[in-house]
Design a protein around this nucleic acid. Structure first.
Length: 221
DNA sequence: GTGTGGATTATCT
DNA sequence: GATAATCCACACC
């Protein structure tokens, strides 16, 4: 059994579509309450089962569409491996992994993870979740379960002192690829011709994705 | 099981 | 002033 190690910088310096697929099956880890807290930190972790790629300047659904750079989306312009957390609908946080390199504002939205470590704490963070499949099956749900908010905006997944990172699970990539489904991204109907592009990726028949195959989805292998 | 609408506020125009 | 990369409750089947 190979030891789980954080993915390195080069892993994140690829285009957002490739990264969105490569992140499936990898483990998102949050040390709670954090490395610097007095008590021993607990691992809140889950394997990524659903992602969406955002392609930056030309992508009308991306926050950086048209190249408009604001205080809000500044983190998307940083190097691959950084995090972009935004607040929306007056109550929800969503997290993205920044792809590519500095000044290339592309990212991958983490839409769902399959919880595997620290479920007790996650349940406390999400009292409204009736079943464990409701714990992290949505971009705002997983942020709530892992207690990720804007304090994590612009943090670096490769910061050795940070409490958020992604580990290589050494999953069988052929297996992951054969189960990868693709379809339109969720909640971007306003994005004209970009609304229907197959930029959402998720694992077939995995009960922890936010919603399983719509008729428009197809196998990506 | 499916569908509809309300919550609630930072951010940008 | 309008909108949002969402979630949840409740109605109705």
């Amino acid at each position: 059994m190979l030891k789980a190690m954080p993915l390195d910088r080069s892993f994140y310096r690829q285009d957002s579509v490739s990264l969105a697929k490569a992140l499936l099956g990898q483990r998102l880890v949050r040390l709670y309450p954090g490395r610097s807290a007095g008590t021993k930190a607990v691992r809140l972790a889950g394997d990524i089962v659903e992602t969406e790629a955002y392609l930056g300047v030309p992508d009308l659904a991306a926050h950086t569409a048209g190249g408009r750079r604001t205080a809000r989306n500044e983190a998307m312009y940083s190097d691959g491996g950084h995090i972009y957390v935004y607040f929306t609908y007056g109550m929800h946080h969503c997290m993205n992994v920044v792809a590519s390199v500095v000044d290339e504002p592309v990212a991958v939205l983490i839409r769902a993870i399959e919880p595997v470590e620290g479920l007790e704490v996650m349940r406390q963070h999400r009292p409204k979740a009736r079943k464990d499949t409701d714990l992290c099956s949505g971009p705002a749900k997983l942020c709530q379960a892992l207690a990720i908010d804007r304090a994590y905006n612009h943090c670096d997944l490769l910061d050795a002192t940070g409490d958020l990172f992604i580990e290589d699970t050494h999953a069988d990539r052929k297996m992951i690829t054969s189960r990868t489904m693709t379809g339109p991204r969720i909640g971007v109907a306003y994005a004209k011709e970009w609304a229907n592009k197959p930029l959402r990726f998720f694992l077939k028949d995995n009960p922890y994705v936010s919603r399983q195959s719509e008729s428009k989805s197809k196998n990506d292998a």
